[in-house]
Amino acid sequence: MTNDTSRFFSAPDGLQLHARDYPPALGGERRLPVICLPGLSRNARDFHPFATLLSQDAALPRRVVALDYRGRGLSAWDNDAANYNVVIECRDVIAACAALGISRAIFVGTSRGGLILHVMAATQPDLIDAAVLNDIGPAIEAEGLKEIRDYLANRAFLETFEDAADALKRIHGPTFPALSRADWLDMAHAIYRDTNGRIAADHDPRLADQLQAVDFSQPLPTLWPQFALLAERPLFVVRGEHSRLFSTETMARMQAEASNLETATAEGQGHAPLLHHRSLFPRIKAFLDHRP
């Protein structure tokens, strides 16, 4: 059991947002907190096992905060779907830090969360002490983004969380051979919510609208100038072995351009890796333990 607490606060435009706050075990109060930023359609529950391991670590615990972006988890849905974008979500993350009394932190950004960190490095760099980028970089692959688009467009309603775990394994199993049945069930409970007896993805379905509007006949935009700013601080970059969104070529260029960068490959995982998986977590923890 953990003693994480729900925190509600206002975005700059007044929308109510939510975060899960995991206080550290004794001795961790003076260390920098870790703020976890989920993927496009995901929410704070994605980080529950990871946050529990970090906050309750016997040797070097830390406070961990996991955010629900607008339209996800327990945060309110936005009346204007155009506000589901990286710039506004970055402003929301900055507002969350202010509301929770955090002036500097180590950030963990999965997919969309990593893109937000690129923007933050250009707009509020002093917040970032160090960062973990989970299967994301300044360039993303069109094929991987198309897969996410098609996955989000197929909004299914399921009977049970067991059914949801089965559905996730059918879709993602080929790129996640390392996951156990317990992992798939954990993922199902993180992604889906039971609403009046129906199991459905826990986000505003209009999140898919922006991806439907992407013109894949044109090159996707990149964030290399913003990455140069982010790379001024220590970075740990994770790539899923079977990821189709984050290429080995992009990771190699990141290594060439950043002197403070460490990398790891999440074997047997695709997009986006489970950071608490036993094959990956010790390496991330070692990186974090070198920070104040």
Results as ranks from 00 to 15, higher is better:
2 T>E: 06
3 N>W: 08
9 F>M: 03
17 L>H: 09
17 L>Q: 08
25 A>T: 00
31 R>E: 00
31 R>A: 02
37 L>S: 14
37 L>T: 13
42 R>F: 11
42 R>M: 12
45 R>W: 07
46 D>N: 12
48 H>L: 13
58 A>E: 06
61 P>W: 01
62 R>S: 01
63 R>V: 05
67 L>N: 06
68 D>Y: 05
69 Y>V: 07
81 A>I: 09
82 A>Q: 13
87 V>W: 12
90 C>W: 09
90 C>M: 14
93 V>I: 12
96 A>T: 02
99 A>W: 03
102 I>W: 02
107 F>R: 08
108 V>R: 01
109 G>H: 04
109 G>P: 04
113 G>N: 05
116 I>E: 14
117 L>F: 08
129 D>N: 10
130 A>E: 02
130 A>W: 01
131 A>T: 06
137 G>Q: 05
142 A>M: 06
153 A>G: 14
157 F>E: 15
160 T>H: 14
166 D>N: 13
166 D>G: 11
171 I>Q: 15
173 G>S: 05
178 A>V: 03
178 A>L: 05
180 S>G: 09
184 W>K: 04
184 W>P: 05
189 H>G: 10
192 Y>S: 10
197 G>H: 06
198 R>V: 13
200 A>C: 12
202 D>L: 09
212 Q>L: 13
215 D>C: 10
215 D>N: 14
223 L>K: 12
234 P>D: 03
234 P>S: 03
253 R>P: 00
254 M>S: 02
254 M>F: 02
259 S>Y: 00
263 T>D: 01
263 T>A: 01
263 T>N: 02
276 H>Y: 03
276 H>R: 05
280 L>C: 03
290 H>N: 13
291 R>T: 01
292 P>F: 04
292 P>I: 03
